[in-house]
């Protein structure tokens, strides 16, 4: 490289920047979070042994899987928004709450219809977000944040700040009561008595998400839109549709998560889902998705979700209180994001 510009009269201006990409960085980008997952598992095993019990005990694995199931469901959709370069969907908490409210409110129509209405409410929210951000190019953070506040206001005023219980909303007929009971049951069913339905649903959602992301034309278009919006636009991709679609997927996933959340809590209220916006973003970023968009994978996101769960698990093994965890989580988050950003820059983006 340097020979080419040797004839430059001013030697101080020699471009000494590295043009090769560090192999380690590439490796980190490829394997990404799974390295950390393995490291955390090893750490967990050591700490568990020191405590005299097994990290791989059925109950512990199950508890990790269950603790992350809801987050995983939301993350499987959130990745599209981050991937498309729109940073974060701040309306996730109220999407979850809204889906729970709608499901419980319509439980009288029967369980499948109620579920469909819940998911549909998520799709509607996604469409509105998609229209505002994809079509009108609103600032993604500010819009979704403001929309979150609006949804919160609507839910609070319409339902008067109350909590909804499925079995008291349900009419006094066998049909409605059965619907309410099956609603409660979805978060409490164990397939084969071991793995909870929630964990299965999460994995299924990740598989679907992976399929959409890597096997469909939408996934391919999304890659281009996330990498370079302008380039995608000039190559004839309907960017508006792609971005809208990414929000619809995200809100749908959040709605499914919200329904399970409401079933787990046995109540639907406006405060369901508080904190999920940031927690899920943490998982997605941990999974190696770049904030700028165009980089990342669904498999990595699953790794991010697991890493988050295992980290929490280990922190409580070590005996940290609920609040000290915040500081540790914050520092870990910053460190991961820094590595993420650093590798992004080394790869020539950003």
């Amino acid at each position: 490289m340097s020979e080419q510009i040797n004839n430059n009269p001013n030697p101080a201006k020699v471009d000494s920047r590295k043009t090769e990409i560090n192999r380690g960085i590439i490796l980190f980008n490829k394997l990404g979070i799974w390295v950390i997952v393995v490291a955390l598992v090893i750490l967990g095993v050591i700490i568990a042994m020191a405590n005299g019990s097994s990290f791989f005990g059925a109950s512990n694995v199950q508890s990790i899987l269950e603790a992350v199931a809801l987050q995983g469901m939301v993350c499987s959709g959130l990745i599209y928004v981050v991937y498309a370069g729109n940073m974060n969907d701040m309306s996730i908490p109220l999407t979850m709450a809204m889906a729970g409210m709608m499901t419980v409110q319509s439980i009288n129509l029967g369980f499948p219809i109620a579920l469909a209405i819940g998911v549909l409410s998520g799709v509607c929210i996604g469409l509105i977000n998609g229209f505002m951000i994809g079509k009108l190019k609103a600032n993604p953070i500010i819009w979704t944040w403001g929309f979150n506040l609006l949804l919160s206001g609507i839910i609070r005023v319409v339902w008067g700040g109350k909590q909804l219980y499925a079995d008291s909303v349900a009419a006094d007929t066998e049909y409605a009561q059965n619907a309410a009971n099956s609603f409660y049951a979805i978060s409490r069913t164990y397939i084969g008595g071991v793995i909870s339905l929630m964990a299965i649903v999460m994995l299924v959602m990740f598989v679907i998400s992976w399929f959409i992301h890597s096997k469909t034309s939408f996934g391919q278009k999304l890659k281009l839109v996330g990498t370079s919006y302008e380039a995608a636009r000039f190559s004839g991709i309907n960017c508006t549709r792609v971005v809208t679609m990414s929000y619809v997927l995200c809100s749908t996933a959040a709605a499914v998560g919200g329904i399970f959340y409401a079933a787990l809590r046995k109540t639907a209220s406006y405060e369901n889902g508080t904190g999920y916006d940031f927690a899920c973003l943490t998982c997605v970023l941990l999974g190696g998705t770049l904030l700028g968009g165009g980089q990342g994978s669904v498999v990595g996101t699953l790794g991010g979700v697991l890493a988050y769960g295992i980290l929490n698990n280990i922190l409580s093994w070590v005996g940290l209180g609920t609040y000290t965890k915040y500081a540790v989580q914050g520092v870990v988050f910053l460190a991961i994001v820094w590595i993420n950003t650093y590798s992004e820059r080394k790869l020539g983006k950003g």
Binding site: A48, N51, S53, G57, S59, N60, Q62, S63, E66, A67, L70, Y261, L264, R265, N312, N313, S316, W317, T322
Partner: peptide
């Protein structure tokens, strides 16, 4: 007061 968070704490206790 979040069911999921409490669940995790208790599950960790049971293991620990």
């Amino acid at each position: 007061f979040e069911a999921a968070a409490v669940k995790q704490v208790v599950a960790d206790w049971i293991t620990k």
